[in-house]
Write a protein that binds this DNA or RNA. Structure first.
Lengths: 238, 238
DNA sequence: GCACGACTCTATGTATACAATTGAGCCAAC
DNA sequence: GTTGGCTCAATTGTATACATAGAGTCGTGC
């Protein structure tokens, strides 16, 4: 592994874990001392993490850990939903290949099996993985590099990812109901795409992202769910 | 001006002008020789231009000039329209401040005056400027850092900008009609936002972006319009 | 004659020395 | 007492030397 990649991963971990606090300025030399790499890969990592949205550039030079409000998270989820809605509509309008349809149907079936049973802690990671895969396949079905790239950027923020708040559900009583609703939306959007119903596919993906809105609100209410949200350390209460 | 910024601007110019051809690999040392800066700012510039979408990383290291198909441009415009639609909807739902409304109305009025008369070559730059300003104000009215940032990235591609194809209109007979339609859309979207009509505002901004679609098609048909499109050198015919 | 391997050369990845700018702290003058 | 400016330190911006990996070519062996 390259030193740059190592630095990116280490810094990201430090930021998301809250060890580096929002607003805190990052000195290149301090990182050099901490991680044992030279300034060059550190600079590369800082550039990348700023692009990713975890850091913000200070006008006079250097970077600080970015902080987010509850509204920012809401908007990030809404943005992802909007772009995934665009992807779903394009997929419906353009008509994906039989191979792509078979693939996403297979993914849907595996999710069905998982959701049928009560989901335990150990099967949750399997759910997260399949859920991510579903969203990736859907984006792929739009058949557009440009759209895919834009969505990649939108989900780079840890709490904007399709699976960001899934783990929160594990500790909530409404867990099972939410999963069933989400899975129904998965099924419906695939159906809409197959039938070339663009508007329906778009509306469904938008609404689907709002499951995350709801989970966010619940996570903020339940103190014991806080730790389960990735990047919760970056959230500053208004 | 910093060496990094100088390098970014120079490289961008070289790419957009077509001096560096799509698919061409960029050697750091070659750029050093060409621009007279050291490798460090060159590396910074390459990272930034990759983020911007003008370059793509080569798996084995280094960067190459990215090339785009007509479909890529279409998708980039559609993506911008979708995100600007989101911004317009949020602006309508949240209700912008009186100051923001006054500002965008002022912008609208200036555009009205400009559009009333036949637009000559020298007033075109004023139109482009006001048009950019209108779009920026609209994004600002959504009141979301996250959405604004995402839109910034979407319009970074030269042909995705709201003003990308405006200059094309200068050489087209339909020019005036298109400008009048675009201005009507500007007016309507502001009205919709003021009335808190979110769905209407969103639909209008989406449709507004499709003016660029039309201009793209016309630009591709008319050979003499080619040079007026920024980044046309990056387009590879399928 | 073809294919495989080794070697060389060139490219990027990394480390570090040096330059320049910003920001803070202190002193002095009004 | 406050404000202005100056100096010094610390941090980022820049240049460059060195390490390393990859690609291309030449030679040899089958």
């Amino acid at each position: 592994m390259s030193q740059s990649l190592k630095t990116i991963l280490s810094l990201r971990e430090l930021i998301l874990s809250g060890e580096l606090k929002p607003g805190e300025r990052l000195s290149e030399l301090a990182i050099v001392d901490r991680l044992g790499v030279s300034r060059t890969p550190v600079r590369t990592a800082l550039l990348r993490l700023e692009e990713e949205g975890l850091l913000e550039a200070i006008p006079s030079g250097g970077y600080a850990v970015r902080h987010f409000s509850e509204a920012d998270i809401f908007d990030a989820i809404e943005t992802r939903g909007t772009l995934e809605g665009l992807a779903a509509r394009l997929a419906a309008e353009r008509g994906p290949s039989p191979g792509q349809i078979a693939e996403i149907r297979g993914c849907l079936r595996k999710l069905d099996i998982l959701v049928q049973h009560e989901i335990a802690t150990d099967t949750f990671s399997a759910y997260v993985e399949l859920n991510e895969r579903f969203h990736q396949l859907l984006v792929g079905m739009a058949g557009s590099r440009v759209v895919a790239r834009q969505i990649e950027r939108a989900v780079a923020l840890p709490f904007a990812s399709p699976s960001a708040f899934v783990e929160v559900q594990a500790v909530l009583p409404e867990s099972r109901a939410i999963l069933l609703v989400a899975q129904e939306q998965h099924r419906s959007v695939v159906e809409a795409i197959e039938r070339r119903e663009g508007a329906r596919a778009e509306a469904l993906m938008r609404e689907h992202s709002r499951v995350a809105h709801r989970n966010l609100v619940m996570a903020l209410e339940h103190q014991n769910a806080h730790d389960l949200v990735p990047g919760m350390a970056l959230i500053r209460q208004a």
